[in-house]
Design a protein around this nucleic acid. Structure first.
Length: 662
DNA sequence: TGCCCACGC
DNA sequence: GCGTGGGCA
């Protein structure tokens, strides 16, 4: 790769940028018409899979596309690139890193593209600059609020650069999130989209660093020149995808959702992840020891009962012990694999038959707690920050929800005493701070009420009544004062069932009652809440007509299975048709609240930080003297996120740990 | 690697 | 209904 000739560079870029158009034929993979040889041949004469994949897939590749990919490794070349970036009102970029762990990765370089089939690769360091010097040169580009930055999975690149002090003020267009709105359940990987949307097969990363395994190299191990084509291609493809997805977002009526919710949210999530959550590792380690002792005790007890040692974690071994050795009579049939069922539900039923059973149940609970939460959490604490830095995934849940991983902060136990102990280990940054948890009360049921306009349900919320008690009163035809716990819990189960599109079978299973009784309850329910019933039917009808379910902000979920000939498959789609608008609207609402809340924090220049999102709950790390002010801002941001036919109610509480903050 | 189970909303 | 993750086979 030659050093670029910067005098001609700007002219060439500007010329290209001026004539850039969205590529035609975005769907069908069309082999390139050009017989022009690729500019670069990094891999020698046909040693790699380029030709193979081209032949096999029919997609164009770098080899048969005339591209202008340039290495930028001199001050003159960098000057020209920055000039080109400043002359363009939009640019795509992509960071290359040595690993995918943002907190520890090295920055290898950044690629840019301001026009289709062209790109620039800028190594993080070279003879002419250090990493910091490079970022200082690029800072004005990223700080330009009038410029659009395009990236695929922007959150990752943003975090890598933000850690290094770069300030971002560009308008953001994340092609991954855009595609998530266009086709939520499809793959959003860049390589895949290059194929399906551009008919182009990218250079496999394995061509550079080898296949996964011990011998796999890191991006940082390669000579910078050899990365040029690969890195430029990513920025180029990203640039091209933006041209395709812009109009597509309009077609699916998702412009506003994208611009005003999802794009602002990307940066907010990134900042939450970088901020992290402080964990009391000592507390968890103590608890781990305690759990370990209890598990050992239970293991001995269980083996003692069984009269032999065996693997309690293995259903295959546990089954025969329970039902043959100990001859516990189970009124259950074996599973299709010929094994005894040992699920919690089964064991719960035969708890009284033999003392080994409750011991196994408790053993499982504690083992699960220890291996899923107590032991892994301290290992995920970043040594520098002393906090866990989760990753919020914005493009995986089909309904529009976020998900959280490494660690998953959205499934930390709360229901049992032993589980709740884990929440005690989530603590504020220091003695001067508290955790503040703010959660939407019954948000999905309120959405169901608002969307259906069912008078009974709407009334209960408008009057501020306990919705499950109000439901029970109607279903069981008694005064609200006469509703007992059993009635309320049954009503609660039906309310939840509605949200999940669940039928009599599911309800019966949940409540442990005969299916006939479950059906009676549901029938009575739908007599009282006839409009809610009509709403669920409308949801299904609309999906049949349009092909998709839709949330309050117009987020779509396509459900082609609604027309399936397979009754099971079709029924699943029908449940989704009811659930997706409800669950998805709840996701929309809290996302809006997060955007509003971050704006409020910025506007008032508070030191409080939003640090967690758990579907209907936001958690803040707050200086004690900001608590009162913050509560007012949260109430305003969350309760008024959208206007519905029922009020949104927000419950708030503070504490010295996450458990206390509930 | 896929399946089952269990945790959250 | 929507997820993530541990452990077995």
């Amino acid at each position: 790769m030659e050093d670029l000739e910067f005098r001609t560079l700007a002219r060439r870029i500007l010329g290209d940028a001026a004539s850039t158009t969205a590529p035609a034929g975005t769907a069908a993979p069309t082999p390139a018409a050009t017989d022009e040889p690729a500019q670069l041949d990094l891999f020698g004469g046909g040693e790699t899979g380029g030709e193979v994949s081209e032949a096999a897939s029919g997609y164009r590749t770098a080899k048969d596309t005339s591209t202008d990919y340039q290495l930028v490794a001199t001050t003159e070349a960098l000057d020209a690139l920055i000039e080109a970036l400043q002359a363009s009102d939009t640019f795509a970029f992509d960071t290359e890193t040595s690993s995918l762990d943002v907190m520890t990765t090295q920055l290898v370089g950044i690629s840019f593209s301001v026009a289709a089939e062209s790109g620039f690769w800028v190594p993080a360091t070279c003879a002419d600059w250090s990493e910091q010097e490079l970022l200082e040169r690029l800072q004005p580009v990223f700080a330009d609020a009038n410029k659009e930055a395009i990236a695929h999975h922007f959150k990752f690149d943003y975090k890598v650069l933000a850690i290094r002090g770069l300030a971002f003020h560009n308008k953001v267009f994340d092609t991954m999130v855009a595609h998530y709105l266009i086709q939520p359940e499809a793959s959003h990987k860049l390589d895949r989209l290059a194929e399906t949307e551009l008919g182009y097969a990218t250079i496999p990363i394995t061509d550079l660093i080898g296949k996964a395994g011990k011998a796999q190299k890191s991006m940082a191990d390669l000579p910078v020149e050899s990365i040029t084509e690969y890195a430029c291609e990513d920025a180029d493809i990203t640039f091209q995808l933006r041209q395709v997805f812009g109009p597509r977002l309009t077609e699916v009526a998702a412009d506003e959702l994208f611009q005003t919710v999802e794009m602002p949210l990307v940066k907010i999530l990134a900042d939450m992840e970088l901020e992290g959550v402080r964990i009391d590792s000592d507390e968890l380690n103590r608890y781990s020891q305690e759990l370990g002792k209890q598990i050992d005790g239970l293991t001995a007890k269980i083996h003692d009962h069984a009269g032999q040692e065996f693997n309690i974690d293995s259903p295959k071994q546990l089954g025969p012990i329970l039902f043959e050795t100990l001859e516990i009579k189970a009124r259950v049939k074996k599973t299709k694999t010929g094994q005894y069922p040992t699920g919690e539900e089964v064991l719960e039923k035969i708890k009284g038959e033999h003392p080994i059973v409750p011991a196994v149940l408790r053993y499982r609970k504690l083992k699960k707690l220890k291996s899923t939460y107590v032991d892994p959490l301290p290992k995920l604490v970043n040594v520098q920050s002393g906090r866990v830095h989760t990753t919020y995934q914005q493009t995986v849940a089909a309904t529009g929800r976020l998900s959280s991983k490494d660690p998953n902060l959205q499934n930390i136990p709360i229901r049992t005493e032993e589980g709740r102990a884990i929440r005690k280990a989530f603590i504020p940054r220091d003695d001067n701070h508290v955790l503040l948890a703010a959660d939407y009360s019954q948000v999905e049921l309120r959405i169901a009420a608002a969307l259906s306009k069912d008078p009974g349900l709407v009334d209960a919320f408008v009057q501020g009544h306990d919705v499950h008690t109000a439901t029970a009163a109607k279903v069981f035809q008694v005064e609200p004062e006469a509703v007992d716990r059993g009635m309320r819990s049954k009503a609660k189960a039906v309310n939840f069932g509605i949200l999940y599109g669940q039928g009599a079978f599911g309800l019966a299973q949940n409540l442990g009652i005969p299916r006939r009784e479950a059906k009676e309850i549901i029938d009575a329910y739908f007599v009282e809440f006839a409009q809610l019933k009509a709403f669920t039917a409308d949801c299904v009808d609309r999906v049949r007509e349009t092909g998709y379910a839709e949330t309050v902000l117009g987020r779509r979920r396509y459900l082609p299975d609604i027309a399936s000939n397979n009754a099971t498959v079709r029924a699943f789609a029908e449940r989704n048709a009811v659930n997706a608008p409800i669950q998805g609207s709840a996701a929309d609402i809290i996302k809006v609240a997060m955007v509003r809340m971050q704006a409020a924090l910025n506007e008032h220049q508070l030191n409080a930080r939003m640090i967690m999102q758990v579907h209907d709950e936001l958690v803040f790390d707050v200086p004690v003297d900001e608590v009162a002010q913050l509560e007012g801002l949260i109430e305003a941001a969350m309760a008024d996120a959208v206007t519905l036919a029922v009020p949104l109610v927000v419950d708030m509480s503070t504490g010295q740990n996450w458990l206390e903050a509930h």
